[in-house]
């Protein structure tokens, strides 16, 4: 793990690395470095993109994109001392203007994840040609997975207006 850490640090500027535990490596990188790091890692054998997630840090007015990458191999020869390594690559983007570049050219399976994040967090992935609705059926004022979208208030607002249907009086006992 340390070898990879050193290599990452020497190749890319401005990144911070930390070890979570159990061979989980967390890397925080500036926006511009994310795609180069991902393709660098892919060439190193970390070719399985498990997940792209997003965390809304509302107090810091930032969205954090999280890429979870690991290897398909049980043992990665180059880093044999740390097989089964998960890498959590994180970057922060502005909440006001959530723009980022797409990952599809490097990892094809990034497409649905980016679609989902576009829909649920309102992030625009530049270059992804298919940012169409995925899970939701209607448009929301605030992307619904952001922290300022309060589901309880939304439900109240949306459904409390619907009047209660009285049970029929002559129903069977």
């Amino acid at each position: 793990m340390n070898k990879l850490k050193k290599e990452l640090k020497s190749s890319f500027k401005g990144i911070r690395t930390g070890i979570l535990e159990d061979n989980r490596l967390a890397v925080s990188a500036p926006k511009d470095a994310v795609l180069p790091i991902l393709s660098f890692l892919k060439n190193k054998g970390y070719e399985h993109l498990s997940l792209i997630s997003c965390v809304d840090w509302i107090e810091e007015k930032e969205l954090e994109l999280v890429y979870v990458i690991t290897s398909y191999l049980q043992k990665n020869d180059e880093y044999a001392d740390n097989e089964r390594l998960h890498i959590l690559l994180k970057t922060r983007i502005s909440r006001e203007n959530p723009e980022f570049k797409t990952l599809v050219p490097i990892f094809k399976n990034a497409e649905p994840y980016e679609r989902e994040l576009h829909e649920l967090f309102g992030i625009n992935f530049e270059g992804n040609k298919r940012l169409t609705p995925l899970l939701l059926e209607r448009a929301y004022k605030i992307p619904p997975f952001r922290k300022d979208f309060n589901t309880r208030e939304y439900v109240k607002e949306k459904f409390d207006k619907i009047s209660f249907v009285e049970e029929k009086k002559n129903e069977r006992a």
Binding site: A26, L51, L88
Partner: peptide, 17 residues
């Protein structure tokens, strides 16, 4: 803290961030 864990469900990799 944060974590990513995964198990092998009957369909494949089931992870949780």
């Amino acid at each position: 803290g944060e974590t990513y864990v995964r198990v092998e469900s009957s369909r494949g990799e089931l992870g949780l961030y």
